[in-house]
Amino acid sequence: MSSKKKKKLSPTQQKYQAYAKIREPKRPVLLNSIRAFFVGGIVCTIGQVLQWVFMTYFNFDEVSAGNPTVAVLIIISVTLTGLGVYDHIAQWGGAGTAVPVTGFANTVASAAIEHRTEGYVLGVGGNMFKISGPVITFGVFSAFVVAIVRIAVKALGGM
């Protein structure tokens, strides 16, 4: 918790939180990191294998093989989400399953499935990007800022 937030707490609240803290189980950070390293690595290796398959058997080059590779990973992730398996893998693998392609597909698919009961327009359409929306918003905005910086540097005679 940030120190700014702590200041607002009364001494009794602070005392209790310290009291509770030592009695709570800790997140197993090291174990989680190791699992995330391997799970994330496995996902990336699958991606690498797919890219190799597309390059070797389907006449793609290194750049153009990217699109079908990502598409296959998305299909796998969405299928696992639909079958109710992905959240269990994520509970075990943690941050490893948040690797952009599969993690992102899972956020969109899970929200779409969840809100199917509220109809296609207000439910699926309105909620599909509920979790992934912030990523898109800030991703696009960051890209915009970086592009402006690059143009400015170029105009000033840099690069």
């Binding site: 893998i89 509970q91 993690g103």
Partner: peptide, 17 residues
């Protein structure tokens, strides 16, 4: 889960608490 937290199929790791 749907109302308070995330979609049920969303892959987020829950802490031991």
């Amino acid at each position: 889960e749907k109302q308070y937290r995330y979609p049920t199929e969303y892959g987020a790791q829950k802490p031991p608490t």
